[in-house]
Amino acid sequence: MQKQIAQERTTLVESFLLMGTVVSIRLVGEGSVADMRDSIDRAIHAMRSTEEACSRFDAASSLRDLCRRPGEWVAVPAALFQALSIAREMAELTGGVFDPTVGRALELQGFNRHYLTGDESDSQVPDAGASWHDIELNPDGMQVRLATPMLLDLGAVAKGLAVDLAAHELGSWPGFSIDAGGDVFVAGSDPEGAIWRVGIEHPLAPDSLLAQLELTNMAICTSGNYKRRSAENEAVHHLWDPSQNHSAEGLKSCTVVAPQAVLADVVSTAAFVLGPKRALSFIEEMDLAGVVVHEDMTVQMTKSMGGYIRE
């Protein structure tokens, strides 16, 4: 029965470079392939728009424009306003261990190169000791005021939001998956008409899997330190702990399952930066499912994660 359904369906896979990584969309559809392609174009456009608003690496982005105007109320695009609202809330929830004002610190550690043009960014923002408290948000007219000069980094939020916007564009098809360099959203059914299977990468051997999940209409995001390293200093990675002024230590990866990619992304990043003692309990406090891999390869998971693991 299922096989017959599957045969009437077409699966289209297209991959793009976006937000410094490879984004692959797999769309399961019935009917016109041209319509399917059009949907993928819309999804990619939504992600590209989010990138144009929120990129720290592109001097022409709305984020960089905002950072050039400290002290002023600035009307910003909706995607940037939403990403900032979520990032600020997470900063408050973690008491500032997660903080979106770490952009300058990351830039100075060599995380400064645009992935398409190769241009190195130098925002030249003075180190004025800014923190998330200095981000003021006014939902009326979506205005933002940065009370202190700072370079924002929305890496933990903007990609998730972009995936959610792309998912919205694909929502009317029988099934799709979006893989944004490790941030995954799956919906409906897979190309064979079954529930999606998503692997969790093994931090020590990226060709193999730590576990397999079965789920749909859910996002799965992993924050890990085992791929992106600073060109300046190999000991430095991109998950920054502002309280220590150093990249976060003690964990290899945190994986979180949530109904929205932006939620999974920001919680997995925050859990990673919170460190080995607090990561798992933090994911549980957020009422989400997750897996935490420690530096010594000890694996912990929330009780709720068991429901997704394929034995």
């Binding site: 470079l17 410094g20 990584t21 490879v22 692959s24 797999r26 992935y115 990609k159 998956s177 893989d179 360099g181 490790g182 941030d183 995954v184 799956v186 897979d190 190309p191 064979e192 079954a194 999606w196 299977r197 998503v198 692997g199 969790i200 990468e201 093994h202 931090p203 990226p206 193999s208 899997l209 397999q212 799965i220 995001c221 992993t222 924050s223 890990g224 330190n225 085992y226 791929k227 992106r228 990866s253 994986t255």
Partner: peptide, 18 residues
Amino acid sequence: IQMQTYRVYNITGATASS
């Protein structure tokens, strides 16, 4: 550890660089 990867279309992991 070898694992069955049939139908695993997506893998979540640390962000790959382009």
